[in-house]
């Protein structure tokens, strides 16, 4: 494992430990934020903010 990867894994582990040590109400507030974000993503999937256009008819003659 490269030193960079090792540092990344260590910092991820530290973050997990910090999160685990939080008081329960604080963890619940984080879950509530994750729920809100997931709900937003779900609603965005149903109403994609993508402009849908007919594909251009390349080569078609102009009238």
């Amino acid at each position: 494992m490269s030193p960079l990867m090792q540092r990344t894994m260590e910092s991820k582990n530290e973050r997990r430990k910090r999160l685990m040590a939080l008081p329960y109400p604080e963890k619940v507030r984080i879950v509530e934020k994750m729920r809100a974000a997931a709900a937003e993503m779900k609603s965005a999937a149903w109403h994609p903010a993508v402009l849908r256009e007919e594909p251009p008819a390349y080569g078609a003659r102009k009238p």
Partner: peptide, 15 residues
Amino acid sequence: GAMGATLYLEPISTF
């Protein structure tokens, strides 16, 4: 469930 496990682990996403 997930909210029970959240007491012991890191926060777990659940609905």
